[in-house]
Design a protein around this nucleic acid. Sequence first.
DNA 1: ACGTTACCTTGATTTAAATCAAAAAAACCG
DNA 2: CGGTTTTTTTGATTTAAATCAAGGTAACGT
Lengths: 257, 257
Amino acid sequence: MSKSPDSANIIDLSRFRVTCSNCNLSELCLPRGINKKNLGKLASAVRQTSVYEPGEFLFRAGDEFKSLTAIRTGTTKLFIVDENGEEQILGFYFPGEILGLDAIETDRHTCNAVALETSSYCSFPYGHLDELCKSIPELRIQMFKFMSRELSLENKLLLTLNKRNAEEKLATFLITLSERFKRLGYSATDYKLAMSRQDIGNYLGLTIETVSRVLSRFNKDGLIISERKLIRIIDYDRLKSLCNSQCETAKKNHPSN
Amino acid sequence: MSKSPDSANIIDLSRFRVTCSNCNLSELCLPRGINKKNLGKLASAVRQTSVYEPGEFLFRAGDEFKSLTAIRTGTTKLFIVDENGEEQILGFYFPGEILGLDAIETDRHTCNAVALETSSYCSFPYGHLDELCKSIPELRIQMFKFMSRELSLENKLLLTLNKRNAEEKLATFLITLSERFKRLGYSATDYKLAMSRQDIGNYLGLTIETVSRVLSRFNKDGLIISERKLIRIIDYDRLKSLCNSQCETAKKNHPSN
DNA sequence: ACGTTACCTTGATTTAAATCAAAAAAACCG
DNA sequence: CGGTTTTTTTGATTTAAATCAAGGTAACGT
């Protein structure tokens, strides 16, 4: 999976004056309502910003956990590997999102994180962050909210993977990406996939062949135009309606009250 | 699913002198290394303990989130319901575990929680808890750890659901229950399932028929003796070895470095 | 205790997606 | 640029689990 060894390819971007105050992600990443003074404190907790090339690991399962990582640019793939070496992708992460929350409990990373594109990150030493949580209530609340949100999202994912067929999974995948890109200020209908069909299949619990076939069908049906990594959503509403099985069988599983 | 309306069936157990200091779950639920004084503070945050009968809801998706809930006794089922009314069980929770962490972000519950047996709970008003996190570092750390643990566990679940076949899923389910019961001081080999085959199937993404068939096969192969809700694990090691596919195909999915 | 209901098991058949196979299209690289 | 590798697409076949169907067994309520 890794194209090159994950030698710490850390480039100091401090000369660009990257601080939380002028970061265009502050709306996504920072606690809302934080005041100037506290913002300065938080910015001081950013140890460094760094850049990783495609295929480079930010961290691996088993690595000592020192810092939470906020994504500034690029797409990052998070995955675990089981005893047999089988990989399970847990998600694809975008700017403004936080990596490493699952490592807090054990002080060791439980996942692997790989940059899929040239990507930049901010690093927040966890000890420092915890310390700040004492004095900055908004930060504490935001931290809890970040983790809480992560849990909710994973719950939804569980439903998608467990209860949806291939078509519904892919439709959900495309719509979810669309919504996330929109939130980041990018086009909701035209985007470039950073991940391979292999990765999409692994994430959704499908084979690469099934992914390819379903995307082809979406093309033929005029839902999207996909050409390799490029996606254009033509009929958003119809694609959206494909996300949830409207099949009657749904009723069966819960002979409701 | 609910046998009776979830009228707040709250019984005040305070006369039993249930406090954190004498709670037999403190090892599981409380921050380690917390001192006497802080323990008292924390105990004061317990608003009430309450008892629910099988089928009663602790909370429903959409309910206002006020408190985190610690389980004292009994098994609790957590699930979400999608637009079509289809149910997805997210997990079964046992004494010492915390419910409601996913609701922090939105101030509303995103899941439904139902008691599967007569069960008792402690309720921690979230505002109060957050306040205590300011002054009790151990509590803050424990809170982060609880959430972090929840994320790791869900990651593992994702792998099981996405990459395992029916047999492996059931083996994993039985072994995981065994480990959790052991941790609680109960038998690791003899236990009673609190949930129906329907629930097991829903959780694992299998039909009730498949669950039944695989359990029958496990019986025939001398791995377990299951009689309705009772499970006795006969050959723990072999059951354990069934959890991970040792199939060579594992290699295929990641043409590793 | 009885009939009713809910739950569980087992068997036969179908099906969605996996696997097997091969060609086409991009990407990579010296 | 031309050859090699990797990724993607498409088709044919197989298969694990779903669905359909029916009988058995425990639990429930009056």
